[in-house]
Design a protein around this nucleic acid. Structure first.
Lengths: 339, 339
DNA sequence: TTGTACGCGTTATCAG
DNA sequence: CTGATAACGCGTACAA
């Protein structure tokens, strides 16, 4: 209950100067007689002394802690990412301050402000919108910036770590084309986001490459938050000529989309083939087991943390790291229904 | 790129003393002439000055930041909890430092050490084991302790926020008894955890109250991590007289258990009725839709944060908050198969 | 309003 | 070499 001991308390109790205690704490700073070191260590133990991080940070400027700014921890993909980032950071001796954005620019702005005030060493983020000034301010503070999963244009010095979205979208599309599908629904994130854009573009490109005309009606770029996944599916099903296959490339909307299909009593894959971008044990337990794009969260996290923890001197080069996602074919894709 | 401005830079630029700047920053500390305040504000803006949290904390002792120590962010239940805690904390102007434990006492120990060094104002945790000394040290530092979901004996001053585990386990059990089940498998967490204990006890008590003999073979208390959920289900199915119903009260093992049932091609609910403790959109999408216990994560989070943010003076009373979970009957429970 | 001591750990400088 | 002293970093709050 009483006020915690300070370094001076320890020094007094061990009958040495604070400098000695400090040296014992971060050994290497200077020589300390073994006997003295012993005594100090014992005293520290007895008093249960713990140096205050705040005081240390005050002196040493930018810390080794990381800010992790995620759009939605509730999304299993981000949850796994968070888990991996925390582990990875811990392994390197850093802590993670987690902030949620809810895809809301204001909240994001806010989060960045806080992180800036904390002078964290690096920030790993799934950026929501072009909060350009906030990002640049952070950068000006010497904070390392790493965008993971998505990225933003106009923030020149940020690293990017993501899966190969183009390739994954192409793979999914070509898989369906190979099965004979010609009308493929495609639900993705907003075109204002890098993932929404690249996945959609790659899908369109794949169709074009195979000589399939692109029907814009089949492309749905919807927000990550909210329940538009349901509506998107609903309206796709109601088209005069509905799709025979569906790719849900909006991770956050997978569950909503699947639910809607269930309600519409669409048979999968007899009536409709389904591929989802998700990383979630339940996709395998669903009937039928879903064909998925599995994002390697551990790898994404490892690279993100590594880049975020680089001291500026080490490697000033901005780098973009692209990791392959895994295309897992299960039972939700089949040939389109016969006419 | 150059060093960030300090309060003194601002003072110099605005041609006032640092005291004035400080007052403008946290208005209320003292009067400032409107004109001066304007000028200072403008200067702050121009220099993009942001007070360093470290310096503030140094002066003001325990912070308003919260530590959130979770066993497993990958578990959807904890992920939702994290999300809610972060939101709730933000609404109250605090940040959350997230740490993962992986159910490993060493990691937990470590996390607590870090939090202690940071002098966070409060810690919300799902405790793993009796790291008694670590918890007590934190307490001695004046940190508010809130255990959520699970709790620990032997940490007297910690608040507890959890669902009514006894009631939920009883409800699930009685639901099955009401359908005519007499042999019910029960998979729960280790008896060394509060949730494992209370759920199992309540289940047993419910059986006893209804005059059903308790077969210890049907009770499986398994760890949260690892894949023992699968084995537990497997061995239950192989009993001479296998259960006609199963309750999975170990949130972390739900997916593994369900997967094993799938592999065993057990028909649900014809062969086996199933109730799981989970809070996850996919339980509804599973075939058949699963009967579940839904934990009100938002409420748990709200109460936890509230308690964790209480200043010691406000309410020194240790309190235990119990929230009702929701029992949602869907299609995975039915009468037992006829003999 | 302003000057300044304070909080606490780090580190450079200095004396033994 | 070992240990001590003092200045520093930055915002806060009280006295002048």
């Amino acid at each position: 209950m009483q006020k915690p001991p300070t370094i001076r308390d320890v020094a007094a109790a061990a009958d040495v100067s604070i400098a000695v205690v400090s040296r014992v704490l971060n050994d290497g700073t200077g020589p300390v007689a073994p006997a003295t070191r012993e005594r100090v260590l014992k005293t520290i133990e007895e008093l249960a002394y713990r140096p205050r991080t705040a005081a240390r940070e005050l002196k040493s400027g930018p810390t080794s802690s990381l800010g992790l700014v995620l759009a939605d921890v509730t999304n299993p993909f981000f949850a796994r990412l968070a888990d991996s980032v925390v582990q990875e950071a811990r392994a390197r001796g850093s802590q993670v301050i987690l902030m949620t954005t809810q895809e809301d620019p204001a909240l994001e702005q806010d989060a960045l402000e806080t992180l800036a005030a904390r002078r964290v060493g690096g920030v790993i983020a799934t950026p929501t919108s072009t909060n350009a000034d906030a990002w640049l301010r952070l950068e000006a503070l010497g904070t390392r910036l790493v965008f993971v999963d998505r990225h933003l244009l106009g923030v020149p010095h940020a690293d990017v770590v993501s899966i190969d979205n183009e390739r994954s979208a192409r793979e999914a599309t070509e898989h369906l084309l190979g099965l004979g599908h010609r009308r493929i629904g495609f639900i993705s994130g907003p075109l204002s986001t890098s993932t929404g854009r690249s996945r959609t573009d790659a899908h369109v490109a794949a169709l074009t490459a195979h000589g399939i005309p692109v029907d814009r009606q089949l492309l749905r770029n919807i927000p990550f938050r909210g329940d538009q996944g349901s509506d998107a599916v609903g309206s796709l099903l109601e088209l005069e000529s509905p799709p025979t296959a569906l790719i849900v490339a909006n991770t956050a909307q997978v569950a909503a989309a699947v639910r809607r299909l269930r309600q519409g009593s669409v048979r999968i894959p007899q009536d409709l083939s389904l591929i989802v971008f998700d990383d979630n044990p339940w996709t395998e337990l669903f009937t039928p087991a879903l064909t998925i794009i599995r994002q390697p969260t551990a790898l994404l996290a490892a690279h993100s943390v590594e880049r975020a923890l680089l001291r500026l001197s080490d490697d000033a080069e901005t780098r973009s790291t692209v990791i392959d996602a895994e295309f897992v074919v299960r039972s939700s894709t089949a040939q389109p229904p016969a006419r």
